[in-house]
Amino acid sequence: MDKTQFMFWFLSALAVFSSLMVITRKNPVYSVLFLIITFFAISGHYVLMNAQFLAIVNIIVYAGAIMVLFLFVLMLMNLNKESEQQKNKYLLWSGAIAGGMLMVIMIAALNTTEPAVISQPGAGQIGLIKNLGTKLFTEYVVPFEISSILFLSAMVGAVVLGKKGD
């Protein structure tokens, strides 16, 4: 087992464990913290697959910006005291069984006997900023500009929704 394989299994186990923790913790603040660990593990996977730019963006945008937003909202609401009421046990079990069934069926459907192999995960240079930026600002410049309009409308929408009074 070489270094890359070891890192793959370690990061996979970390991602699965912490995402399980996200959905099982009672305290929402712990859920947010475990979700940050999940995002770091997924960023590690990006680095292993030579997508360095996406790894950095993932850490900055998700773990840095979005999770801080979640944490702010949670702490503003002060939900730590009241634990959420579970309506009935059957609802919980049916949800868990439905999710597990989906997982089993998708894994069984996608399990091919002769898989394609990513032989040299560290080689290549697709993830470098130069290649991504050239592609982004030549072929994909229209979606890029449209996404700036999306951000503007999201900003206006958040301000309008969050304004006190009507």
């Binding site: 996200v22 999940t38 949800g95």
Partner: peptide, 13 residues
């Protein structure tokens, strides 16, 4: 698939 289904389970439960 495993991470996606954990997310689905969380949404359902």
């Amino acid at each position: 698939v495993i991470i996606f289904c954990i997310g689905v389970t969380g949404v359902l439960t």
